[in-house]
Amino acid sequence: MEETINIEQIFNILKKHLKLIGGLTIVGALFALFITVFFMTPKYDATVQVLVNRTETANNVGAAYNTQQADVQMINTYKDIIQNKIVLDPVRKEIAKKDNFTGTSDNLKNQISISNEENSQVFSVTVQDTNAYRAADIANSVADTFKQKIKKMMKVNNVTIVADAIAKPNAVSPNKKLNTLIGLVLGAIIGIAIAFLIEILDKTVKNTDLLTEIGLSNLGMINHIEETKKSQRLFGQSTSRTRKHTDSGR
């Protein structure tokens, strides 16, 4: 026998197990929030902005433009230099003394991300760390060290720190709202899945159509009458009257 479920049946199943689904939804959200608050380490970020450009002595506007475009193309090279040990090793030593940093240069590399806008000579160095002040110190140290190293390596003197990194009090991760929303959705999905599983495993006969489908005959129906105090009094009175009639007959 092939079973099919229409939209009305789906709605009825969800309505029938609404408490179960709602309960698991709330539990999922609370569980996600609990894990986020008590088991995930908050991380903070700090960003320093650096401008690198070469001085053009020629008065030719075209030459100045070409130099600017060359500087933009060189930003990818600057990114590689910043994430190289020639910059990160001195930074690691400085931060180890200043902020008790115990990681390696590779750890620093994983904490650093570099970005820039299209056709812009300014690029941003962003550092993530479990300590907001240490994140700012690392970012500023990276910019200062890069400024020193690039002069010797590529003969570039015009390196300007556009904006120093500052410590931010608000953590960037984990995202409590996002994690709670994910827990909410997962809880709802689990609740719906359990509700449908209960219905699939329930083999009781729910209507007479099912009997016809499996080749059985309907011999009749027995209605269930809920026993209430009123019905108890009614049937009690009927029973007592019957007994009186019986006694009088004797």
Rank of each mutant, 00 (worst) to 15 (best):
L108T: 05
S248I: 13
N59H: 03
N60P: 08
I21L: 04
A64P: 02
Q128P: 03
E3V: 12
N110T: 15
F101K: 06
F101G: 03
E118F: 14
K97Q: 14
N218Q: 10
T104K: 10
F34C: 04
P169R: 00
K85P: 08
T25I: 00
N116D: 13
M153E: 07
D80V: 14
L33E: 04
Q237H: 14
G62P: 05
M40Y: 01
Q111V: 07
T102G: 12
L211T: 07
Y133H: 14
D144M: 11
L24D: 04
Q9R: 13
S231D: 09
K206C: 03
R233H: 08
I81T: 07
M1H: 15
Q73G: 09
L108G: 06
Q232N: 15
G183V: 04
I13L: 05
D247V: 14
K16F: 01
K79T: 12
T160G: 06
N119T: 07
E94Y: 13
Y78N: 05
S217V: 12
N53Y: 09
V72D: 09
R134T: 11
I138W: 05
R250L: 13
K229P: 03
Q68P: 04
L234Q: 14
I161H: 01
K151D: 07
E3K: 14
I189L: 13
N175P: 03
D45Q: 00
L211H: 08
R92G: 08
N84R: 09
I13D: 02
F38C: 00
K203C: 00
N207Y: 02
T145S: 11
V125F: 10
V48D: 00
N140G: 05
N6P: 09
A143F: 09
V61T: 10
K97Y: 10
E213G: 02
G22I: 00
V48T: 10
V125D: 06
K16G: 03
S141Y: 06
I21W: 00
F123D: 07
I26N: 02
T104M: 10
I21A: 03
Q148D: 13
L108W: 04
P174N: 08
N100K: 15
V156F: 01
A29P: 01
N84I: 08
D106W: 12
K229Y: 00
I21M: 02
K109S: 14
S217M: 10
G236A: 10
T4S: 13
I114Q: 11
S248N: 15
A136V: 10
D144G: 03
V52D: 03
T57D: 08
V87L: 13
R233P: 02
F196S: 08
A167L: 05
K93S: 15
I10A: 08
I225F: 12
M154S: 02
P169E: 07
I7N: 08
E227N: 15
E3A: 09
L30D: 02
Q68V: 10
L88I: 11
G191K: 02
S238L: 15
R241G: 11
D209N: 08
R233M: 12
A171V: 00
Q232W: 12
K155G: 11
T145F: 09
G220Y: 09
L186G: 01
E226C: 05
